[in-house]
Structure formats: C-alpha cells, structure tokens
Amino acid sequence: MSLPLSSKSGAIVLLIASLAGLAIALYAYFTPLTGVTGTLGALVAIVACFVLAVMALLLMQVKTRGASLTLRGLILLGLAGTFFVAMLLHQWWIGVAMVLGLIGLIVDMVRPARHARLTHT
C-alpha cells in the first residue's frame, strides 16, 4: 500500500531543495566570473546535491524503519557537508537550499509518526 502524498511531503521538499542546490552549483561551476568556475569545490557541491536528490527519492520508497533511519542519518550528514562546502565557496544560495532540505528532512521525520498514530487508533 502506497503512502499518501502528505506523508511524503518532507521528502518532496528535500528533493526540490537538492535539485535547486544542484542547479545553483552547476551555474556556479560553468558560468565565468562566479569565483568558483571550474573548481573542485564546486564540483563536490554538484555531486553532493545530486546524491542528496537520489537519497530523497530513496527516502520516498523505503518501507522499513531501519532503512529509513539509516537513510535519514546519511542525508543529515550530506546536508551538513554540502552546507559547509557552500559556505567555503561563498555560494550562499546553495546554503539556503540545504537549510530548506533540512526543514524537509525534519518534516519527513515527524509526518510518518503522525500518520501511523492516526491509522492505528
């Protein structure tokens, strides 16, 4: 049985934030005069945002509690690391996207518990 869209809203916010960070990082990497054009740091931000987007998609699909907790822990580390890279690169908008991703992760952690309580009472 598939979960309703409202229980996936946190993962959707995380996915959108990751894709926004990816777009900003790609812009910074390829556009001349951004200060990080062609740098390894911008490339790391691109890869990290892509991996976060993939993990957000996986988060929507996992069924077991253990896999969900492990994935959430990895996503949290990814968000923190990408935020740190963004601050070192002075790419503030990537940092904003990672904060929005953190909000999505928090929503995802709260929503399933609320959904489970409503269906079992």
Rank of each mutant, 00 (worst) to 15 (best):
V51Y: 06
L69G: 09
V51I: 10
I16Y: 08
A56E: 08
L57K: 03
A20V: 11
A20W: 04
S18M: 05
I12C: 04
L69D: 12
V44M: 12
A20F: 06
A28Q: 05
I24P: 00
L76V: 07
P32I: 02
M60E: 08
L52C: 07
L15W: 10
A28L: 02
A17E: 09
M60C: 03
L52H: 10
T70M: 15
A11F: 09
L77R: 02
L19S: 09
G10M: 08
V54S: 06
L14P: 10
M60W: 01
A23L: 04
A67F: 13
I24F: 06
L26T: 12
L71H: 09
R65I: 14
L74H: 10
G10A: 12
L71N: 09
L40V: 13
P32E: 13
L33N: 11
T34S: 07
T34H: 02
C49A: 07
A56M: 08
F50I: 06
S9C: 04
Y27A: 01
L40S: 13
A56C: 07
V44H: 08
A28V: 00
C49K: 02
V62N: 13
V13A: 09
L77A: 09
M60N: 01
V36R: 05
A45G: 01
T34Q: 11
G21D: 03
T70V: 14
L14K: 04
T64L: 05
L71P: 10
G35I: 02
L59A: 15
T39P: 03
L33K: 03
G38E: 06
V47I: 15
R65H: 10
L74Y: 14
A11Y: 02
V62D: 02
G81D: 07
Q61E: 05
G66M: 12
R65C: 14
